[in-house]
């Protein structure tokens, strides 16, 4: 080879281009690999999130009103909610402790809700009295069905002290 010119360097000097062909293809390759990896991450995230869940419906039919006499706190173990009837009206609370998700229980002799796992205590309005729970028990959306039955949506929380008056 009599004359070895370096076209890339002269091109750079003349045109001001930053990339030669090798660098361009390297960056193109790495860039597409990066894109493909991001796509793969999204792909696996979607795959690992179930599209259909065979879980009970968040909406619970708690039955007719007369099941809950005034002054009562009733725990429905299957749906993990409390149905409370006091002078101001009806309301429902989640029975899942806001600390680490254990199921709490109503203690009529103490007049409070207590969690067996780490000792959190709440009053019947769900406000925390003691223990490690960071938040009060959430109030759940409660309404009367057309048939006059108490309905609770466990996926919708409402502000505290929003009673259902009948």
């Amino acid at each position: 080879m009599p004359t070895m010119t370096t076209p890339t360097q002269t091109d750079r000097l003349e045109t001001g281009y930053e990339l030669d062909r090798r660098e361009f293809f390297t960056k193109l390759g790495l860039g597409s690999l990066g894109l493909a990896s991001a796509g793969a991450l999204a792909f696996y995230y979607r795959y690992l999130s179930p599209s259909v869940l065979f879980e009970p419906s968040p909406i619970v039919n708690a039955g007719p009103l007369d099941r809950y006499p005034a002054g009562s706190v009733t725990l429905d173990v299957d749906s993990a909610i409390y149905l409370v009837h006091i002078a101001e009206g009806y309301f429902s609370l989640s029975a899942i402790c806001t600390h680490l998700g254990c199921m709490t229980a109503w203690k009529p002799e103490l007049n409070m809700i207590a969690c067996p796992c780490h000792g959190s205590r709440f009053n019947r309005e769900g406000q925390k009295l003691a223990g490690p729970a960071p938040k009060p028990l959430p109030w759940l959306k409660t309404w009367l069905s057309d048939d006059g039955e108490l309905m609770v949506d466990r996926s919708v929380t409402i502000p505290q002290l929003q009673f259902l008056r009948v």
């Binding site: 995230y45 690992l48 999130s49 179930p50 869940l53 879980e55 600390h99 680490l100 998700g101």
Partner: peptide, 27 residues
């Protein structure tokens, strides 16, 4: 596992997602 996965949901921002992916559901 209920308690343990609830600990993972204490991760800021993505905690609930991590729990959902670990359990493959809400429970």
């Amino acid at each position: 596992i209920t308690v343990g996965t609830n600990i993972s949901s204490a991760v800021p921002l993505v905690g609930d997602k991590i729990r959902f992916l670990l359990l493959g559901g809400h429970f």
